[in-house]
């Protein structure tokens, strides 16, 4: 097996049954190679959110295995799990910044997994972490906001900070949960573009949960469709046709949705 062929993330038979009895994930198998940005689409309640939370065990899976770089995540003890989580940056729908901390502190909080308790308490981060944080802030045009409180930022700015927090972890994989659900269409596209660019620059793989099919087709090479906890579609963005959408979401007139995505594609090709 060549190193390139080995997937970064390998999920086998991942199952999650909530205490209420709802089966959120039903024996999901999924592989993500290094550097691939993958969109995960599906109707609300299909288990998209549960899937990415099972990967970093914010939600404990009921059965199955998750391997990151060959390391089995589901059986790790607490300390080892924390170390594994450093390799997986997570980005949230409602940004999930600590509102009362400054932008800089929020970005630096991505380094918590690498920093001792008291050093973090006194905000004594290594100089290179702070330099890195400023570089990233400058990269997204927020360097002048470093000392603003996070709740003073607009939605798009907050999501940028959320992305930087994840990047500060120096991750191999990004888990992105509905990054654009709280944003307007223009900001949504900016955020998606930034995300894809950053992944390309750093060779990061990403699983992006997303509602907007057109946006998914535009920014992701590979699309995985989830319905009732099962993968019902897995292929390149171009292969997502009306039949596939019907399999994922159910019966509906999909012609316009697809045409919009195709148009965007043609624009890019032109």
């Amino acid at each position: 097996m060549t190193p390139d062929a080995r997937p970064l993330l390998a999920i086998r038979g991942l199952t999650k049954r909530y205490p209420t009895g709802d089966l959120a994930l039903d024996a999901v198998d999924l592989e993500v190679p290094p550097g691939q940005v993958m969109a995960l689409i599906g109707p609300s309640g299909a288990g998209k959110s549960t899937l990415i939370r099972c990967v970093n065990r914010l939600v404990e899976p009921t059965a199955g295995e998750v391997r990151l770089d060959g390391e089995e995540i589901t059986r790790l003890g607490r300390a080892a799990l924390r170390r594994a989580r450093r390799r997986m940056g997570m980005i949230f729908q409602e940004y999930a910044l600590v509102e009362r901390l400054s932008v800089m502190e929020n970005v630096l909080s991505g380094r918590l997994g690498y920093t001792g308790f008291w050093a973090a308490w006194f905000r004594r981060f290594p100089r290179r972490d702070i330099v890195q944080a400023f570089r990233l802030l400058d990269r997204v045009g927020l360097a002048h906001m470093a000392d603003k409180r996070a709740d003073a930022l607009s939605g798009g700015q907050r999501q940028r900070v959320g992305i930087l927090r994840a990047l500060m972890q120096d991750p191999a994989l990004l888990l992105v949960d509905e990054p654009t659900a709280s944003l307007d269409p223009k900001t949504s596209r900016q955020i998606m573009r930034l995300l894809v660019e950053l992944c390309e620059e750093r060779g990061l793989a990403a699983i992006v949960n997303i509602h907007d099919v057109a946006l998914a087709q535009e920014f992701a090479r590979r699309i995985v469709g989830l319905r009732q906890g099962r993968i019902v579609f897995d292929g390149p963005a171009e292969a997502l046709d009306a039949a596939a959408l019907t399999r994922i979401y159910g019966e509906e007139d999909w012609s316009r949705t697809i045409r919009r995505a195709e148009a965007a594609e043609e624009e890019e090709l032109a």
Binding site: N56, L58, A84, R85, F92, E94, A96, V98
Partner: peptide, 12 residues
């Protein structure tokens, strides 16, 4: 969710 986000960074 703010707590969840910090947990996800690998913080203790």
């Amino acid at each position: 969710t703010q707590v969840e986000a910090l947990t996800a960074t690998g913080a203790s």
